[in-house]
């Protein structure tokens, strides 16, 4: 903390609590309340119920959870591998090429995700690249949208990695593959985990592109939520949102525990 005086620190904390509370917690709290609300006309809901959860559980909720988790995992894993690969190989290139390719990677994130979905839909609508109506196109769209973040995270990690480690490894006789597996990747592990977590969270919440490309039978949670709220079923949408939040949180926390145990930190 840079502020040493007690009143100063209290003011800072209050400011922080205010911003965090208003911008982050309030919307979540409202959604949580709606998911439990019997009716909500005034300032606060009238009566609490778990009926909405029962409703969505009877509906296609579990299929949506499954679709989202599988899509998230597959797209994130793919993005992790290719983003890491790209970061590792770009490191060997000249600075100009590095900057150009680095920028290209981020273009999909600058374009509305709906456009990305549309682009994929058009691009893969003819044989031999006929992917419309498949699960693959959902995963591809997620992959395109999130790979920039894995690339960015891993590149940042690599940039902070002292070349000494790899050079010492080489001088001790480690060939490139051995060195990559036993030195570079373990040293990058925290960045890889962070990259995976971020991609996974992004994929779990992805809507714009998914709406354009999803096939019947592969309705992800955000798409379900969207169609529920679109139909005016706000409370059910809120219940499903809470399920989405819970699933993502449980997964990210689990991931953290696993890597903590693996790296012995």
């Amino acid at each position: 903390m840079l502020v040493w005086s007690r009143p100063g620190r209290i003011v800072l904390w209050m400011l922080f609590a205010l911003i965090f509370g208003v911008l982050f917690l309030a919307p979540l709290a409202v959604i949580l309340l709606s998911s439990l609300a019997d009716q909500w006309n005034g300032v606060l809901p009238r009566g609490l119920t778990t009926a909405h959860y029962a409703d969505v559980a009877r509906g296609a909720a579990w299929n949506s959870v499954k679709a989202s988790l599988i899509t998230g995992f597959a797209a994130s894993a793919l993005a992790l591998v290719s983003g890491t690969w790209a970061a590792l190989s770009l490191r060997l290139q000249g600075p100009a090429l590095k900057r150009l390719l680095g920028l290209l990677f981020f273009i999909p994130s600058a374009v509305p995700s709906v456009s990305v979905g549309l682009g994929l839909l058009v691009a893969f609508s003819h044989p031999p690249l006929l992917l419309n109506g498949t699960i693959a196109i959902v995963m591809i769209s997620h992959f395109v949208l999130i790979s920039a973040f894995t690339f960015g995270n891993v590149s940042a990690g690599l940039a902070r990695l002292s070349p000494d480690f790899e050079q010492v490894a080489s001088s001790l006789g480690a060939r490139p593959a051995y060195r990559l597996w036993h030195v570079t990747l373990p040293l990058l592990a925290p960045y890889l985990v962070a990259a995976f977590g971020l991609s996974f969270a992004l994929s779990m919440g992805e809507l714009g592109a998914t709406v354009m490309v999803y096939p019947p039978g592969w309705v992800t949670l955000p798409v379900s939520i969207f169609s529920l709220t679109d139909r005016g079923d706000i409370f059910a949408g809120a219940a499903l949102t809470m399920i989405l939040v819970a699933a993502t949180l449980i997964l990210l926390l689990g991931l953290e525990r696993v890597t903590k145990r693996a790296t012995g930190a």
């Binding site: 002292s162 000494d164 480690f165 050079q167 010492v168 490894a169 080489s170 001088s171 001790l172 006789g173 480690a174 060939r175 060195r179 030195v183 373990p186 040293l187 592990a189 790296t263």
Partner: peptide, 20 residues
């Protein structure tokens, strides 16, 4: 020859011990 075929030992200023 690539570094890994030179049969040398190298010690650098900040040691670069593999932390993991």
């Amino acid at each position: 020859l690539p570094p890994y075929e030179r049969g040398l030992g190298m010690v650098v200023q900040n040691y670069a011990l593999f932390p993991h």
